[in-house]
């Protein structure tokens, strides 16, 4: 068993436990902080996959911005210390169905894309190569996402304006 396998096992265990705690903990702020552990685990797995750039993006965007925004929103509105009794609802069945569906789709995509190919991850992906492939091979999806984000931005401005 190689070092990478051990590291993957540890990361996967931490992520699985934290992910369960995100939904079972009785405190919203704790849930958001467990989410940080899950997302940091994802960054760790990106490093194991030799995707350094993606790992840093994961930290900057998901932990540094999105979770911070979550916490900011929670604390600005209502975040009592201690256990909150009203954090559960009666949609567990629907949640389970959606989760199983998502698991199936993602699993199928992975199987369909890679099958049982063994990936050789010897070279760290250079950020220059990432940039070059975004602006050549994947330029259309990239532009589509840019327009989508712009639309979201405009929408946010429209909702936030009071006049």
């Amino acid at each position: 068993m190689s070092g990478a396998n051990v590291a993957f096992g540890v990361l996967a265990a931490v992520m699985a436990v934290s992910a369960i705690r995100v939904v079972t903990t009785k405190n919203v702020v704790h849930a958001a902080l467990y989410l940080v552990l899950v997302l940091a685990g994802v960054a760790g797995i990106f490093i194991l996959l030799a995707a350094e750039f993606l790992a840093i993006v994961q930290i900057l965007v998901y932990i540094g911005a999105i979770v911070v925004l979550f916490l900011f929103g929670i604390m600005l509105t209502r975040a009592p210390i201690g256990r909150a009794p009203d954090l559960d609802n009666d949609q567990r069945a629907i949640g389970a169905v959606v989760a199983m569906f998502l698991f199936g789709v993602l699993g199928w995509i992975l199987y369909d894309g890679f099958g049982d190919t063994q990936l050789q991850l010897r070279d760290v992906g250079r950020s220059g190569d990432v940039g070059a492939s975004i602006f050549s091979t994947f330029v259309v999806p990239f532009e589509v996402i840019s327009v989508l984000l712009l639309a979201a931005l405009v929408g946010a401005v429209v909702i936030a304006r009071r006049d």
Binding site: F53, I56, I59, L60, V68, S127
Partner: peptide, 17 residues
């Protein structure tokens, strides 16, 4: 690191947490 300065700014942003 190949992504040096980007890394520095990313981990620096963790302190807000």
């Amino acid at each position: 690191l190949d992504v040096g300065v980007f890394y520095a700014l990313a981990v620096g942003s963790l302190s807000v947490l």
